[in-house]
Design a protein around this nucleic acid. Structure first.
Lengths: 334, 334
DNA sequence: GGCAATGATGTAACCGTTTTCATTTAAACA
DNA sequence: TGTTTAAATGAAAACGGTTACATCATTGCC
């Protein structure tokens, strides 16, 4: 691999001149500029960006901790990140952490070992360990989507409570009063917030909260299916089910069909996220749309601001949501 | 950020000794080893891996060009890559290229500019330009999933022709003779191969190939929906549809339902890929399972072999497929 | 023509490691 | 104790760029 010295030799100039020709051409006379450019071509010179990054101390890499790239919602978030990063001259290093703290910690180390400049965490978990937070203050990090809002780091999130309330209100307005909820993992603040929104709407409509209508889940199709089976076997079956994400809702709908329950005639189903599949299942799913790509763009922009020292106090960005009413929710029977 | 010199000063030894303590502890006396380790703790030393990579000339980064991370099949492939890479001490740099040659080329440059050691392309397109293939031979690259099989680079693929033939035979065995096909982009060799497999099975059963039963698509839900609409409006409607991927099949099924066609009673639908959703749609989709994670693992392993000079001639790995019969395909009417 | 100011180019230090080679220290042996 | 051998350590170069500073050449002006 030809290096800058080869170019300098070939052009009969110093390495400094080569560097200047490439970085600030105006500082070099046209004559030498041409000589150098010709030499660059001649020897097939490609600057070693590893050396540049090492010298500059800036890698222009951002590590993104994503619980699972197989989740369609995160896939959209990542797309948005990639776009924003490209515009700002950064590269995204994607880490598929499977929600495992050790793996998260492993990739977070890329920042403390100077392999990346900053970190974006998409899960409500602090991936840093004591060794990364010592003397010199905080490590550049942004927390998005599923967040811990302790004011330490910039945060990009949805008002999950308001969104869940809006969806529950929608179901109540259709005449439902026994509304089941298929939750996400209890460890996720998302789940807590959405549960609170659900309770808010219930309370507002004077419906007493019934703990037995809460079903466990983990955001997967299978978990939704399992919960759906349980629900369909209930003697006093609820007339609606609010699922904490679309995968869960699609899994549950499948279970209902196999139990010969018609959606929405026998039971209404609502999801959360508005993934692409949701418009193409039968019936199309009522859900909450989140601006997934915007989440990604915003997180990257914020992180780069942090890196450039443009941010003093950790900001908190709340993204808008939208209730998308399709055909999986309908009037309550009776 | 403390560097190795700070540690050396703090421990009262030379930088060489510090480096040895960390890399080959057995080459250092226990006494100094302890001194150094204590100093490492004291100053909070984290080796600058950017410097290490620069020095060694090896980045241990692999760039992966993926047409779209939003495709569930690719998401599985990526998971497999990440696993294998972690085991082998490599990091994956994911590039969401949207099938755009320029973006591909941009990320491919990371290899020629020493920011990554090798490249995995998941699309049947050569992302390299002339400047990358000059004198010193080929750039380390592996082509997986959608491949160009020109013998230049290692390849990991499925016998798409055989798989498509197997699926078509399945449909024929159910009594279908008018079998539509919703294709992928014509530019994709995948599409050509699957079309050939489809024709093979037809010919073997003495069914004349009917060009008018071919419908265009691009592997998206929407394209499947559009094709499904066209098919349902046909006067002499086919009794089965073979879709080149599951997204397309799910989109098509949705169109059939809206046209009041029952799957599989009125029309059978088959997919390709066996994504997670396919088992949870109504009816569950008959499809071809591909070992997606294995694709990823194999591609990474192969690339690392190339980087280690363990490979002479570009190997060609064919992964196995499996016909998964669910409920979306049934006996032909009449 | 002589001097100052400006522009063009070169020299060399620097970034943080690893590693070769030289040197010092310790151990082994007679 | 003196000599040989092995083990432990240190000094310094190297990786490939960028850049502060020094130097040299050119131009403008009196």
């Amino acid at each position: 691999m030809a290096n800058i010295r080869d170019v300098a030799d070939s052009a009969g100039v110093s390495v400094a001149t080569v560097s200047r020709t490439l970085q600030q051409p105006e500082r070099v006379s046209p004559k030498t500029r041409n000589k150098v450019m010709a030499a660059v071509q001649a020897v097939g010179y490609k600057p070693n960006l590893m050396a540049v990054k090492f010298r500059s101390g800036k890698t222009h890499n951002l590590v993104v901790l994503v619980p699972t790239v197989a989740n369609v919602f995160f896939a959209r978030v990542i797309s948005g990140m990639q776009e924003a990063a490209a515009e700002l001259g950064y590269s995204i290093l994607l880490a598929n952490t499977l929600g495992n703290s050790e793996i998260e910690n492993h990739y977070a180390k890329m920042v403390s070992t100077s392999q990346a400049d900053g970190l974006i965490q998409l899960r409500a978990n602090n991936p840093l360990d004591a060794s990364m937070i010592n003397d010199h203050g905080l490590l550049p990090m942004v927390n998005a989507c599923e967040v811990i809002d302790d004011g330490q780091y910039p945060v990009v999130s949805l008002d999950n409570r308001a969104a869940a309330k809006a969806m529950t209100e929608h179901l109540i307005s259709l005449g439902h009063s026994r509304i089941a909820m298929i939750k996400g993992p209890n460890s996720s603040p998302l789940t807590q917030e959405r549960l609170m929104g659900y309770k808010d709407a219930l309370a507002q409509a004077n419906i007493v909260f019934d703990e037995s209508l809460l079903f466990p889940g983990d955001f997967t199709l299978q978990a939704g299916y399992n919960a759906g089976e349980s629900i369909s076997r209930l003697e006093n079956r609820p007339s609606a089910v609010f699922c904490e994400n679309d995968e869960t809702a699609i899994g549950a709908m499948q279970a209902f069909k196999q139990a010969n329950l018609h959606v929405p005639k026998d039971i209404s189903v609502a999801g959360f996220d508005d993934i692409a599949f949701s418009a193409f299942v039968d019936p199309p799913l009522t859900t909450i749309a989140q601006p997934a790509e915007e989440f990604g763009r915003t997180a990257v922009t914020l992180l780069v601001d942090v890196l450039n020292g443009k941010i003093r106090k950790a900001p908190k960005v709340i993204m808008p949501f939208e209730l998308i009413v399709r055909e999986s929710t309908g009037k309550a029977f009776g």
